[in-house]
């Protein structure tokens, strides 16, 4: 078994990149831009979903009991509700407590109302596990005795669900298109590199070089382009994300962002993956016809 010197391949690929300096720079720049756009969009989608999930958490069903229900009856009802499938947790507020809260919030309006005159009924607030199970839960609640009224935001839940899947679909298509564009650009660069070395490739073939011996330096070229673009893209996105968070969080307090530290590992991995895959696929495609004979 003959051994090939691995430095030969790395050296040859670096020479190739240097020889087509302008095109190398262009491919790194374009791939970097694609990665930044992809990364930026991914972060946006992540954050939108993160905020939507928070809205999700606000989704609650409130069950109001009959006006004359006793504390025991209310507790029993709360117990029955807690035993239902889709129920995460329940919290009961008796009418006296609600009135006390109202008095505290607005003493002028409710200050005079005595416990005997209390027009309110007790409420049981339910946090549920999944949006999908809300209609079923709603039906189950209506079957229970002692329930006077149910308030839920089923429409909001459905809208949020639809929005999330819509955003995800757009994101995936966007990713596919940018990936294809990147591959075409890499193919062009490597093709130029192959073209400028076609004599060398011809001679290599006559001497008896195997296909992979000829291909490897070009694949390394693709990998180097991909890696440089991935690293550049990562640092650019990182800087931009921190800047945007600093600006937006201070002005729009309702929005919250996932901290960069939670995302950086995944982002770097994805960038390297996409960058290197683009490089390898691009180089292999551009060399195909030169290796047929």
């Amino acid at each position: 078994m003959r051994r090939y010197n691995p430095f030969y391949f790395v050296l040859e690929s670096l020479k190739g990149l240097k020889r087509n300096g302008v095109m190398t720079f262009a491919s790194v720049a374009v791939l970097l831009s694609c990665l930044v756009v992809m990364g930026g969009f991914a972060l946006m989608v992540y954050n939108i979903n993160f905020n939507l999930e928070k809205l999700d958490a606000l989704n609650e069903i409130v069950v109001f009991t009959e006006y004359d229900a006793s504390i025991e009856e209310i507790d029993e009802l709360a117990g029955q509700i807690a035993a239902l499938d889709n129920v995460e947790s329940t919290s009961t507020k008796y009418k006296e407590q609600i009135l006390a809260d109202l008095k505290e919030e607005n003493p002028d309006l409710y200050g005079d109302v005595t416990d005997e005159e209390n027009p309110l009924s007790a409420s049981i607030t339910i946090t549920y596990k999944s949006n999908e199970g809300v209609p079923e839960l709603d039906f189950q609640l209506r079957q229970l005795s002692g329930v006077r009224k149910i308030r839920n935001d089923l429409n909001v839940a459905t809208t949020i669900g639809n929005l999330k899947s819509g955003i995800m679909l757009v994101f995936i298509w966007f990713l596919v298109i940018l990936f294809v564009v990147s591959i075409f650009i890499i193919i062009n660069t490597i093709k130029l590199s192959v073209f400028s070395r076609r004599n060398e490739i011809g001679i290599m073939r006559y001497i008896g070089a195997t296909g992979w011996f000829i291909t490897l330096p070009f694949i390394f070229e693709g990998i180097i382009i991909g890696t440089v673009a991935a690293l550049g893209g990562y640092f650019l996105i990182r800087g931009a994300y921190s800047y945007v968070i600093a600006k937006v969080v201070s002005s729009i307090q309702i929005l919250s962002f996932i901290p960069m530290a939670d995302l950086s590992g995944l982002l770097l991995l994805a960038f390297f993956g996409i960058g290197i895959a683009t490089g390898v696929v691009g180089s292999s495609i551009s060399l195909g016809k030169y290796l047929k004979k």
Partner: peptide, 23 residues
């Protein structure tokens, strides 16, 4: 069909490199 960017020595050595001959 010599490689213009390689010396005479390198052109000959290249043929051996290509087939994996030890340095």
């Amino acid at each position: 069909r010599l490689l213009p960017n390689k010396t005479v020595y390198e052109n000959v050595a290249f043929a051996m490199q290509v087939v994996g001959t030890p340095n």
